[in-house]
Design a protein around this nucleic acid. Structure first.
Lengths: 321, 321
DNA sequence: CCAATTATTCTCCAAATGAGTATAACCGAC
DNA sequence: GTCGGTTATACTCATTTGGAGAATAATTGG
């Protein structure tokens, strides 16, 4: 901005440059229970919790924390801003709607049943993202063929080639590897190809049926995808997984949590090596006689690491098999 | 949110949950000329350009792009959202002020002189961030001693130890390495220790003088720090440096740009190896007889890479010497 | 032609990473 | 109690990556 005339007449100039808008917060709150990542939802699992931010908080972050904790009874261990969206379609009136989205991690221990909100596995919304038991059949059977058809649909050969490349890259086709971080790119491709319900909603029909995967209102599934992608990236270089773990845990439990988030398996001995050589955990002294097999040592997260929290995180020694 | 009573009475519920606020955009626009990273500023280099976002754009991003290009005549090659801040102090009235900040990269070729805006080296604002010629003397001479004094000032021994650790980590003291990505952490430590002008502004004085480094209005220097940190991180895994380069360039020019951003030197042969094995560039066929020495081949960025833009970027083969 | 300067290509070595093997400690069936 | 199944834990090995330096090539200016 910095309109010179405006500056000359009024001081301070900041105020006139601002635009009056509506704003709210949207939270992607994640917990992992029994090896499944879950997201906190409202409205019959079709929406992410959202609310106004409240004056009187020092920061957006603290406002969100207070609000989520009051509404859900869940303490948020870690909060991070995701993205700010602007929209005009969402509300009927003239104003622009701004939504500031956050990622929050919690332990979902006190998971009482609630009328207003509930937890749902994030792979219900993104069934093509879970590769822990190998490539999910939905990909070769449904998603990839329909994306290929969409690519071939394009008139322009340049666009055709571009679509094919993007699909191949995002979904790890041909000789490429599956990249678990590309959650958002994949969802956006599916949206662009009108293969998710959100893309065809409200338009006159004549659209082909959507692929499996539970839809959400407005752009909430896209926001969830953003959060998943951010978390899958983050666990590789920041020790945030521990925000999702109970006070003590075995290394296999930790591994299962990481695998649940990443949607793919890791090599057990290497995972162990990685965790230990980074001094992220320490033994409690106790062991745990789990299912069958030799008892596992219990570990706890080393608090010292939190001070240098930017320290090396939890890289993923991915396995190919 | 999701207040059940509210939902029962009014539909859709989204509207009532929203909060009326003022919002504007703040841009960190970066260019690199003659080996110096520069930032686009207004108000005698003391503020980042900012303005309202305009209705009628599909996204915040496109609104920002149009606005910056119209105001400055600079095409933004790359735009990325940085962070959204909320404030109450900034404006006099009741409303909350929201600022959505963006990072933009440009080529600063048509750098005409302008009354309203100008370019300034980002190390003018952060002199302790430039380690290309070794550790800048301001660090051992001024910054570190004053941060140490601040650490020792704390009554509580726990806080004292915590401060010392954070300082040592952020500034690479003891046996630790300098981490060029911690721009924001360093600025926030200096702010917390009241060593930058912004921290003591408006308060009754009695404060020690600030350390060198040009201040900015409001929290603009913090936003700039956020942008610098983001860019220093990003160049290591996304090919964004090329947005700052002219159409053709030598590998040394590319290296100098990366070094200017990172604030530290890289090992020439390894930098070359990295760039070439990733197929990021291709030869134009021409050469350039530069200063003294053997003529260098000219390269251009390979457009193909843009399709798989998420492809491996430009890691930094840092050197110790 | 020589010295200085920059470009370009290689080699070397150490650390990080992917993958597989071997041994230990428990359970339950028999 | 012994055996088979199961998980825990500890090593080993090969390959890749990343930091560092040496060697060679092509200019310019004395």
């Amino acid at each position: 901005m910095q309109d010179k005339t405006a500056r000359a007449t009024k001081q301070p100039a900041r105020n006139d440059r601002s635009q009056a808008v509506n704003a709210d917060l949207i939270a992607v709150v994640i917990a992992v229970t029994t090896g499944e990542p879950r997201v906190l939802t409202i409205e019959q699992a079709q929406a992410l919790p959202s609310g106004p931010f409240e004056l009187g908080h020092r920061s957006l972050q603290s406002g969100l924390r207070a609000w989520v904790e009051r509404q859900t009874g869940h303490q948020l261990g870690y909060i991070e801003q995701l993205y700010t969206f602007a929209d005009r379609d969402r509300t009927g009136d003239e104003r622009v709607q701004i939504s500031i989205s956050y990622l929050g991690l919690t332990r979902e221990e006190q998971a009482e049943r609630s009328q207003t909100h509930g937890w749902h596995g994030w792979y219900d919304y993104f069934p093509w993202e879970d590769h822990r038991a190998g490539v999910p059949s939905i990909l070769p059977d449904i998603v990839v063929p329909r994306l290929s058809a969409w690519s071939d649909d394009a008139e322009d050969p340049g666009i055709r080639r571009d679509r094919r490349q993007r699909v191949a890259y995002a979904f790890g086709l041909d000789d490429r590897d599956w990249n678990e971080e590309l959650v958002l790119q994949r969802y956006e491709l599916l949206y662009e190809a009108a293969l998710v319900a959100e893309a065809t909603r409200g338009r006159d029909n004549g659209n082909p049926p959507s692929i499996p995967g539970r839809p959400m209102i407005a752009d909430h599934r896209r926001i969830l995808a953003t959060g998943m992608a951010r978390l899958r990236t983050k666990i590789k270089y920041r020790p945030v997984v521990f925000e999702l773990m109970p006070a003590t845990f075995t290394l296999l439990q930790l591994q299962r949590t990481v695998e649940a988030l990443a949607g793919r398996l890791v090599h057990k001995p290497n995972f162990r090596r990685l965790i230990e050589e980074q001094d992220l955990v320490e033994e409690t002294g106790e062991t745990m006689s789990d299912t069958g097999g030799r008892p596992a040592k219990r570990f706890r997260f080393r608090q010292t690491v939190l001070v240098e929290r930017t320290a090396a995180g939890t890289k993923l020694p991915l396995s190919r098999g």
